[in-house]
Design a protein around this nucleic acid. Structure first.
Length: 229
DNA sequence: AATCGTGTCAACCGCCGATCA
DNA sequence: CTGATCGGCGGTTGACACGAT
């Protein structure tokens, strides 16, 4: 886990994502969808690059991700598709429901690559693979966050109506292609709801959204139409 | 208890292709 | 056609956890 740090040149945060950052991204996307990774971080109140947000969403926060240990069946599939595709991790991941290319790649490098080499040397040797469950703590804390949001009707959206539960595969397709970042009023209401529906107030971030959303020049605010650009 | 070595995996980086003006 | 922008991909890094000594 990388320690959170701030890049002095760009002023953007780097490293590990905090719980509150996760919440902001989840809540923003649930309300406004994904319209432009490069432009949306300030609207979501995040001091992160668009790439960082996209990566975090795709690899960790997206609702239909399966987390935890790889099953024997998944392991066989990875080996099978790797023999077909090589290091095309995204192609392999597409054949594994709820798994990301990053996860498949990591699993390959930490477990299967080594095993394959050993098997190559000693064809009949059986290798015991220990699989760590280091996501446990994060999952439980995020579970709390998700439940606190999804239990609040004012913030529920199509996303949360579809069993938005980390650690489980959701059957429904989630729509996140809404095209507008909303108005200032929307955002005020949104963050007030966000604040009251989570443990946000305990995080000493009360002033955060004000700093983030009332710097109108930096975020692009059309005074004439009263809309965020 | 302290130190060291190794494994794990979230996140970063740089590149590339698609799209659009 | 060209250049800018954006999303996506694969390789790599490095902080942290944990076992060994």
């Amino acid at each position: 886990m990388r320690a959170p740090r701030c890049d002095t040149q760009s002023g953007l945060n780097k490293g590990s994502w905090s719980k509150e950052e996760d919440l902001k991204l989840i809540t923003y996307i649930s309300k406004y969808g994904i319209w432009n990774w490069g432009k949306m971080p300030p609207y979501a109140g995040l001091s992160r690059s668009g790439k960082s947000c996209r990566l975090r969403w795709m690899n960790y926060l997206k609702p239909n991700l399966r987390r935890g240990n790889f099953t024997d069946e998944e392991e066989k599939l990875i080996l099978h598709y790797h023999s077909l595709f090589g290091n095309k991790w995204s192609a392999i991941a597409k054949n594994l429901s709820g798994r990301t290319d990053n996860e498949v790649k990591n699993y390959w490098h930490t477990h299967l690559k080594k095993r394959k080499m050993i098997q190559g040397d000693e064809a009949n040797k059986k290798e015991h693979v220990k699989i760590k469950t280091s996501h446990k703590d994060n999952e439980s804390s995020l579970d709390q966050c998700f439940s606190s949001i999804s239990n609040d009707e004012t913030t529920s959206s199509s996303m949360f109506e579809t069993s938005f539960t980390p650690g489980h595969v959701v059957e429904h397709e989630i729509y996140y292609t809404i095209n507008s970042p909303g108005t200032i009023e929307d955002m005020e209401s949104f963050w007030q709801q966000f604040s009251s529906s989570t443990h946000y107030h305990e995080l000493e971030l009360e002033n955060f959204w004000q700093e983030a959303f009332f710097d109108q020049e930096s975020i692009g605010y059309d005074m004439h139409d009263n809309k965020l650009l």
